[in-house]
Design a protein around this nucleic acid. Structure first.
Lengths: 140, 140
DNA sequence: CCCATAAAGATGTATACACATCTATTGCAG
DNA sequence: CTGCAATAGATGTGTATACATCTTTATGGG
């Protein structure tokens, strides 16, 4: 009801936008029992095929110890397989068959939502948004 | 080490950017014992002077029950005062004197960081970023 | 006035997230 | 080779976040 007020803080603006986006993405994925956070990890693993936990943390700009618990949940659901690396401190991750299947299922509503938002913003602006967000993930 | 890879998902991109931004903002505010989440609430209360918990939730696109716990912490620190509304289900919030003081202190490093990022992106792009993020907080 | 429904928040529960600290490794200087 | 610093990840703790459910209060229809 209150017109959405501009926040002067870039971080606050992005966090707020993230909450709003998370709502719609989680809504779209809810029938699959999946949240966008875990969907993102499935997608990242599909893109990289195999990656260590630390490298995944870098990729997602997320503390690798945060991944410890999320990955534990996903492993319990059977979506992820782990093996130790040559460096035995490392854990190397990849999608299991069930994880690939779950990712495929989830990609359907995700793609619909992406298409909807892309046409809402227009392709040019959509691409700028993705690029700027990506840029902000390393630089700042 | 890995060049930051583009994520195809808009939500994932924004969440990742939010994590990166939160890192630098939290670093800037850490000497004050304040995180950007609570700083945002202080700032929102300064902007609105007085607001109900539900309206604050709308403003921040945040479930009002999430605010219950954050506000409890901030009230315990003495930064926020609450009073019941005419509608006695409501809680009306405003900054205490200590809250205004804390906001003032925190605004110094926050402003420096904002300036740094603004000059990094350029004013035009900075403004577009803020506007787009704000727009995304209602529309989507 | 009375009841049914809706709205505002509180509480229970689960996930997401980061930092401090700990353990197990690795790699390197000597 | 040995010992020590650095790294990968696990664990403890505290905050952030949402949803389901509950309680209290308001509101509207009879």
């Amino acid at each position: 009801m209150p017109p959405n007020i501009a926040l002067p803080c870039l971080c606050a603006s992005f966090r707020r936008a993230s909450r709003a986006l998370t709502q719609v993405y989680d809504d779209a994925l809810r029938p699959l029992g999946l949240r966008v956070t875990q969907f993102t990890i499935l997608q990242a693993l599909a893109l990289t095929s195999e990656i260590s936990q630390g490298e995944l943390g870098h990729l997602l700009v997320m503390d690798s110890t945060t991944l410890t618990r999320t990955l534990r949940l996903m492993r319990a659901r059977g979506w992820i397989e782990e093996r130790p690396g040559k460096d035995r401190r490392e854990r190397w991750l990849r999608l299991s068959a069930a994880g690939q299947k779950q990712l495929q299922r989830a990609t359907v509503p995700w793609e619909s939502l992406q298409d909807r938002l892309r046409s809402r913003f227009g392709a040019a602006r959509w691409n700028r948004l993705l690029q700027t967000a990506t840029e902000m993930s390393h630089g700042v």
